[in-house]
Design a protein around this nucleic acid. Structure first.
Length: 259
DNA sequence: ATGGTAGCCTTGCTA
């Protein structure tokens, strides 16, 4: 039995955030790190610097937008690139891999704004695909973690100003319904096992001094399968990286599994 | 106060 620390972080460009990412790896020594919004084609990923820090990289990407990766101390196995269910979807938003019996996904769920554009139905369809894929994963009866930027505030407790955000794609009932559908499958929001309190955030907008006012959103989540929930020992949000100069607008969330 | 900031194969788009 050993402890495995899994972190998820929307870095808003892996190249721009490389110094902070290397500091996070050195300070927190996570075993697996799921990154989102790498904004970096796989061929351009800063693998050498991460290898020097002790991590191997599995990444998919595209120029300027999206991009997800999994960093790990041990090599990834049985890689899945892209969320099943729509072979025409070319946005780099989902990667999944195994580490022994543990399976980990790094996902960047579509933002969905503005809600009167085609971006909102794309978000909802993507979530429907994630629910279906979650069902398939559960059939395997293994511990797994679906980690990433879900672009969903599960409840008003996860929003600094629920009234102002009520119509936003991150808070709309259609988005919350589908997030809840993931929970109804049997997945568990790891953060809420340990932290029932309201107004704990993972994202603060760059604008209007949101970080300094602690006006944020909880949109980065670790969803655990039942076998993973049985083994989770801790989960928390690490606010330190958000307070640095040239920070991402998101900060890491992590959990520890006793496997 | 109808703005503000950050990143990018930048002059607009996405968040």
């Amino acid at each position: 039995m050993s402890a495995v620390k899994i972190a998820s972080w929307n870095v808003n460009s892996v190249k721009a955030r490389l110094p902070h990412l290397l500091a996070f790896l050195a300070d927190e020594a996570p075993d697996v790190v799921c990154l989102q919004e790498t904004k970096c084609p796989a061929a351009d990923f800063p693998r050498l610097e991460l290898k020097a820090a002790g991590y191997t990289v599995e990444a998919i990407g595209q120029p300027a937008y999206n991009g997800v990766a999994i960093l790990s101390r041990r090599p990834a196995e049985d890689l899945l690139s892209g969320l099943p269910g729509d072979s025409a979807d070319e946005q780099a938003r989902y990667i999944e891999a195994s580490f022994g019996e543990l399976r980990v996904a790094s996902l960047y769920l579509p933002n969905g704004n503005p809600v009167d554009s085609d971006k909102f139905p794309y978000k909802l369809a993507w979530m429907d695909r994630l629910v279906r894929h979650g069902e398939r994963l559960l059939e395997r009866e293994i511990p797994f973690v679906l980690a990433g930027d879900y672009n969903v505030c599960p409840s008003d407790d996860d929003v600094y100003d629920p009234v102002a955000w009520a119509g936003d794609a991150l808070c709309r009932i259609e988005s919350r319904d589908r997030f809840r559908a993931l929970l109804y499958l049997g997945l568990t929001d790891a953060f809420r096992i340990f932290h029932p309190e309201a107004h704990r955030y993972t994202f603060w907008d760059y604008q209007a001094g949101r970080w300094n006012r602690d006006e944020g959103l909880r949109i980065d989540h670790l969803l655990l399968s039942p076998f993973a929930t049985d083994r989770v020992a801790a989960c928390d949000i690490d606010r330190k990286p958000r307070g640095k100069e040239r920070a991402s607008d998101h900060t890491p969330i992590w959990c520890e599994l006793e496997l």
